[in-house]
Design a binder for these strands. Structure first.
Lengths: 207, 207
DNA sequence: TAGTGTGAAGTCTTTCACAGCA
DNA sequence: TGCTGTGAAAGACTTCACACTA
C-alpha cells in the first residue's frame, strides 16, 4: 500500500526524534512517547509505522535501532545524495552552510550563479561556478537533487535545465510553480508567513 | 464554516497568481485559469473561493480586484504586521533582506542575537540588538510575529519568551517542536529535502 | 455560451476501540 | 500489565456533475 504524503512528512519527524532518543541512551520507544513528542495521537504513530512494516513489541515499544534504519530507507536517506545549489544569494549561502544537510547525507557538491562578481569566488567553502557550466558539472558529479535559490524570473528556466540533465528532484525556494516533470518540493517563505498571519487573524475572530 | 488548512495554503498561492494577473493587465480570472496556474482542479478553486464568500460571475469569472482584497483579509495580510527575527546567523540574515516580506506587509522591525560580535552591528539594514532586550523592545515596537532562526538548543526558550511578551505567532526554522501555546508554523529544511528524497526513491521503485 | 455554486459521491486520512501478545 | 496492530467508524478533503445564470 502506498504511503500517504502526510505520513511521509511525519516520518521525517519520527526520524529526528528517534535519533535524539538513541543519542540520549534510549533503546526503545513506544507509540505514545513519539506521539507526545510530535503532538499527534499514538494511534497515528502506530498506523504510520505500520505502513513501513516496522513491528513493535507489545508491552515494550519499537527498537530504536531498527526503527531508525527503516525510516532512513523509507525516506531514501539511507545513503548520501549529491546536491547542487543554483543561486548564491543570501538564501543559497545559508543553505550551503546548513549543517543538517550533511548530517542527513545531503552533500552540496556544486554551486552555481551568474553574477560575475561571485563566479570563481569561494563562499562557505564552495567555489561558485558559472551557470553555463551547469550541464557539464552536473553530469560529472552525478548530482541527483537541485536547490533552486534564484529569482523567480529565471527559476523555471533553471528548473528545466536541471531536469533536462537528469536531476531527479528539486527543492524550490522561488515563489512560483515549476512546470517540469521532475519531483518538486516548494518552500515558500511568504506562504508560510501568510499561513501564520491567517492563524493569528483566525484566533482574533474566535477567541 | 471553518476554512480547511489545505485551503488556506492554496489561498496564499491564489493571491500570488491573482496579483500577477492584475499586474499584467487582466481584470478577471476564471476558476479554470487559476486551476491551471496552480495545477489543481477548477472545482477545487471554486470550492476554496466559496469558503471566502467570494462570488464570481457565470460566463466571466472572478473580478481580480475584489478577489485580491478578499484573499488579503482572509489571510490576515490586509494590513502591515511588525515582525522580529531572533538569530542573526545565515538564515536570519537571509530573512532580514527577503524582499517579499515587506511586499506582503511583513515589516522586520527588530533583530536579536546573543553573539557580542554581532550585537550593535548593522546587518542588512538592521541593527542587531542583544537578546536581553527582547522583552522591552517587543513591547515598545508592538511586534506580532516572531521568526525563530536560532540553534535548536535555545529555540524553545526563545519561543517561550516571545510568547510571554505577547507575540501572537512564530515562524520556526529550528528543527524541533515548540511547545508553546502560540500559533507556530514550522519550516524544516531537512524535512523538505527528505520529502524530496522520498519522492525520488518512490519513483525508483515504481517507475 | 462560458463559467459559477453546490449537493452528493467519492476518496483519503485520522481516530476509535479492542483483541491479542510479551 | 503495558503496549502493539488493525478492522471498522468517523471525519476531512476533493471531485463529480449539473442546474443555473449573466
Amino acid at each position: 500500500m502506498p504511503i500517504p504524503l502526510p505520513t511521509v512528512r511525519r516520518l521525517s519527524l519520527y526520524l529526528r526524534e528517534a535519533e535524539g532518543l538513541l543519542q540520549s541512551g534510549e533503546r526503545t520507544v513506544s507509540s505514545s512517547d513519539l506521539a507526545d513528542l510530535l503532538a499527534v495521537t499514538d494511534a497515528q504513530v502506530r498506523r504510520d509505522l505500520g505502513y513501513l512494516g516496522v513491528r513493535g513489541r507489545p508491552g515494550i515499544g519499537y527498537r530504536l535501532a531498527g526503527l531508525i534504519g527503516r525510516l532512513r530507507t523509507a525516506l531514501g536517506v539511507d545513503r548520501s545524495r549529491n546536491v547542487a545549489i543554483v543561486g548564491a544569494g543570501r538564501i543559497g549561502r545559508a543553505l550551503m552552510a546548513y549543517p543538517r544537510f550533511p548530517d542527513r547525507g545531503f552533500r552540496v557538491v556544486a554551486v552555481f550563479d551568474t553574477d560575475p562578481r561571485l563566479v570563481g569566488k569561494r563562499l562557505e567553502g564552495h567555489v561558485i561556478q558559472p551557470l553555463e557550466d551547469l550541464e557539464s558539472v552536473i553530469d560529472e558529479a552525478s548530482i541527483e537533487m537541485g536547490i533552486i535559490a534564484v529569482p523567480e524570473s529565471v527559476a523555471e528556466d533553471v528548473a528545466r535545465r536541471l531536469a533536462a540533465c537528469g536531476v531527479r528532484g528539486l527543492l524550490n525556494f522561488a515563489p512560483c510553480r515549476l512546470d517540469v516533470d521532475t519531483a518538486v518540493v516548494d518552500v515558500d517563505l511568504t506562504s508560510s508567513l501568510e499561513e501564520l498571519a491567517w492563524a493569528i487573524a483566525e484566533e482574533e475572530d474566535t477567541p
